[in-house]
Design a protein around this nucleic acid. Structure first.
Lengths: 252, 252
DNA sequence: CGAATTCCGTGACATATCTCAACGCCAGGG
DNA sequence: CCCTGGCGTTGAGATATGTCACGGAATTCG
């Protein structure tokens, strides 16, 4: 059901003129590097919300950069329980782990309609052989993703339901903000409550109740699929997250 | 308190004759690569159990390979709650994330007395510039570590207390086995119950009760700091972990 | 337009897990 | 030698979270 709605064709912007790159989240790159990245990229692909980008167990996965839309990595147990490992936003690498390891140990699913820059697996090795700076940045981005999973594990292991929700909302807010996706305190928030529950290790019912409680307590509001954070500092304090400005990161 | 008991000096074996490398867990490497690794390595360091190898927030962390002993990565919340992110066994990289990112977002502590091969931070870049194959393997090892954190997050988010303990014990058993640390079904198991609790997101008391229950149910036995797995397949089934042989990995 | 489906909300009840507290064992140190 | 601190064990009671069940709103689809 998933690969049928893949569409290639619309080529996307040339990397030299990539609008995503202008966002504050990202470092500057030299024209040389950008041309190299452009040469690495073989396709620009669109997928519908709900599609599998990488399915569990897939071998020889390609490497992508998420150009537009949201996605998430997840891991399932044989009996159907599912853990969402982390959420991917524009500019994030998709499938680095799957393209380095022999087989994907997780799945990646599109949360909204997405657009992907496609880098074939073989060229990942070229990148290491010929562009050590980019290879270093690839490893850097991998470590950053691991740090995000570390955070989520700490949240799921140590925080109660309200704190987990607060931590999730705050961290997505900050990441969306760095991408220019926040306007007037609100941003598109496409996660369903079931997905929030799967990300936080909570049941759907308890997630729903705790989510309502935080809404009614004035932490945030939802309307039209957009979430408005009413008091970011309060929410951050509830989750025991203290401000730390994040340096710009590489975009490949 | 921690750096005082660091001891350098005892040089450790030359990489060309590294006994760890002979274990089934690791790939073969060419003499060229081994000499390169040897040149990268500036020190062989011993630390006592309980020492900080990398402390939270540390900048310019060095990169290590754990040569002997056990360690763990952890992350603390401001109020003192602590999550153990993953356990490190001989051959694992220590501090890759900390050496790539600007500052460590986690701490790493020696669980037993440990010996470390020291690679200064600057030379990590040399490795990318001059030995792309090793750089690729470094990224590969980073992805493998992320996969372990993924597993732990799935465990903490989705499994109940008994399943979590079973999953932890089984995965450590398998890793120890690949390193030749298992003899007659038993291996040294240095985690305290508090550390198990911190790794699994459980309270100490509940960990103790669940641990006893599994022992009494005949899953495993402890004696003299060694754990004997009485029925590995049963334990794996309880944790809903199905066998998958792991390919050998690079040792740097 | 009605039927089916998905998502969200809420009440009642069950239970896994937590907290508090006390106790025993053992190793180390004065 | 006793004292102390760290670690593991166990019981009683509290509570956060899970499960079951139902109903309503919105959306899709025939």
């Amino acid at each position: 059901m998933t690969y049928l709605n893949a569409r290639a064709g619309r080529p996307g912007p040339p990397c030299l003129a990539c609008p995503l790159r202008l966002k504050p989240a990202f470092e500057d790159k030299s024209d040389d590097e950008l041309s190299f990245i452009q040469a690495l990229k073989t396709d620009h692909r669109s997928l519908a919300a709900g599609s599998d980008i990488i399915h569990p167990g897939q071998e020889n996965a390609e490497l992508y950069t998420l150009y537009a839309g949201w996605a998430f990595r997840y891991k399932s147990l044989p009996d159907g329980r599912r853990q969402i490992l982390n959420v991917l936003l524009p500019g994030d690498l998709v499938g680095l782990q799957a393209s380095l390891l022999a087989a994907a140990e997780h799945g990646i699913e599109a949360l909204t309609d997405v657009e992907l820059c496609v880098f074939p697996r073989k060229r990942v090795w070229d990148l290491f052989a010929r562009m050590p700076k980019l290879a270093y940045e690839l490893a850097w981005l991998g470590s950053r993703e691991e740090a995000m999973v570390d955070d989520n594990l700490t949240s799921v292991g140590q925080r109660n339901a309200g704190e987990r929700i607060a931590a999730l909302v705050i961290s997505l807010y900050r990441r969306a903000d760095a991408l220019g996706l926040v306007s007037e305190g609100s941003f598109a928030f496409p996660l369903s409550q079931q997905q929030i529950a799967d990300a936080l290790g909570l049941s759907l019912v308890h997630t729903s109740k705790t989510w309502s409680k935080l809404r009614k307590a004035g932490f945030f509001a939802m309307a039209g699929g957009r979430l408005t954070l009413l008091n970011p500092r309060l929410t951050a304090r509830m989750a025991a997250i203290y401000d730390s400005a994040k340096a710009p990161r590489p975009l490949i």
